[in-house]
């Protein structure tokens, strides 16, 4: 995989990742967001943040399984798109849902574990996005890796946030929980394998 090809993949990711937003804008302009447009946008942006998060977390397992090392170069881009949709999600919540009534927002976050967990996930994403540039990677050295392991906690919080949203039917969030568990499982398996190898050596 040469640099040119990787750039092509990145362009494809840009186009794909912006499609959900383009769709929302399109539906919005056509007054086609359904009976509860705020909920529609809130759910859609939240769900896409989660989907892109899972895509980001799947790059390492893909690398381990396929031995295609270059895929790791896509991680910053997908991670930032996750953050982008998370920002849209929280903007929808603060603006469209709660109309910037901060007193109500603070009360909502403090009183309801579901919101608190989601808000926590968002807070954790901020330092990750802020240290995603090459300068910070170089500066933080080994600490950078440690810091970015926070993404695992973030992912668990995001899935729990989704699970606690539904009134009764947890089928859909459970799919995401299962996907996350699978991605964790693959990582652990390879870690176990490599630790065995190093023991032998």
């Amino acid at each position: 995989m040469n640099k040119q090809k990787i750039n092509l993949v990145k362009v494809a990711i840009w186009l794909l990742a912006l499609t959900p937003l383009a769709r929302l804008v399109w539906l919005g302009f056509n007054d086609d967001l359904g009976a509860n447009p705020v909920e529609f946008v809130e759910r859609s942006t939240g769900l896409w943040a989660l989907v892109i998060l899972l895509v980001t977390l799947s790059l390492t397992p893909v690398r381990l399984i396929t031995r295609q090392v270059w895929v790791i170069q896509l991680r910053r881009l997908t991670g930032l798109f996750m953050f982008f949709y998370a920002c849209l999600h929280i903007t929808t919540y603060v603006w469209l849902d709660f109309g910037f009534v901060w007193a109500d927002i603070v009360k909502d976050i403090a009183k309801h574990p579901r919101i608190l967990v989601g808000f926590g996930a968002f807070l954790l994403a901020i330092p990750l996005a802020a240290t995603s540039n090459s300068y910070m990677i170089k500066r933080l050295k080994t600490n950078w890796k440690k810091l970015h392991q926070v993404v695992y906690l973030l992912a668990i919080l995001a899935v729990v946030h989704f699970l606690w949203l539904v009134k009764k039917d947890v089928t859909e969030p459970l799919y995401y929980a299962a996907a996350l568990a699978l991605l964790f499982g693959i990582r652990l398996y390879y870690q176990y394998k490599s630790s065995k190898k190093s023991q032998l050596a």
């Binding site: 509860n36 709660f98 109500d104 009183k111 574990p113 579901r114």
Partner: peptide, 22 residues
Amino acid sequence: VDHPRWTQSSEKPIGAGLFAGR
């Protein structure tokens, strides 16, 4: 009296549009 997972003090009127708030 809130639902344990969300507030009941305000509501979203259906059909009021994207920017109508609660």
